[in-house]
Design a protein around this nucleic acid. Structure first.
Lengths: 110, 110
DNA sequence: TAATTACATCGTAATAATGCGATGAATAAT
DNA sequence: ATTATTCATCGCATTATTACGATGTAATTA
């Protein structure tokens, strides 16, 4: 196969997995960090920060945009990317389920 | 290609991406949630909770184990899985970088 | 010992992801 | 108008992921 059985899972699990998948690549993490650090939006300067070709970076940006995590506004001939604050808050809340209990395992086995 | 250029990225970014990748599937999210809820370890009861075959679940467990997020201890003929508390704390810290600034974008473009 | 149970692994098939060069579209500069 | 810049998209090759049945392994049970 190769396609995940998204039908049979919880909507919440699918959502969390979607966000995790969007961040499941070093390049996309780097892009996201850039957009977090320089709170202001950046454009294709991202390409120069990454060891990837322009087309590859564009593709990673597309995936982040598909997940809803970032937005891209056209500014003349440049494009300005920034984090979608609302969606990112939703993502944080969805991911927060995994950060709940911080206590170790109490059973005998481990 | 198909292989990510892990060489040219920050070690931190590679690490975060590794954890995100491990959680980038609804089945693995479901497994992880199960291990969080029932704080005690579970074994192949996981298979009955998921709409996947035993071999597929075993593969997902393998990936979570490869990322270091869970451990599996053999108990007779059953195997007991649980979250690796130490590694999970490291993962939380690594992922926390993305949860830093919660202020919206201040520039003109968005 | 033989049969059963609980998992892991192998083999296979289908799909997705990664990366890049080439091309295209739109705006800015000359 | 022509050229250059910025970015997106297409096409291709390569590798990774997902899924499952079949098989193997180790421990338990009959």
């Amino acid at each position: 196969m190769g396609a995940s059985k998204t039908t049979a899972f919880t909507q919440a699990d699918v959502t969390v997995a979607k966000y995790a998948k969007a961040l499941a690549h070093p390049a996309r993490i780097a892009i996201f960090r850039l957009l977090l650090e320089r709170r202001s939006c950046i454009c294709g300067d991202i390409v120069e920060e990454l060891p990837l070709s322009q087309s590859t970076v564009s593709q990673h940006l597309k995936e982040l945009k598909a997940a809803g995590l970032i937005k891209g506004d056209i500014e003349g001939k440049k494009v300005c990317y920034c984090i979608d604050a609302q969606e990112w808050k939703q993502a944080q809340q969805a991911l927060a389920v995994l950060f709940a209990g911080d206590e170790p395992c109490h059973t005998s086995c481990c």
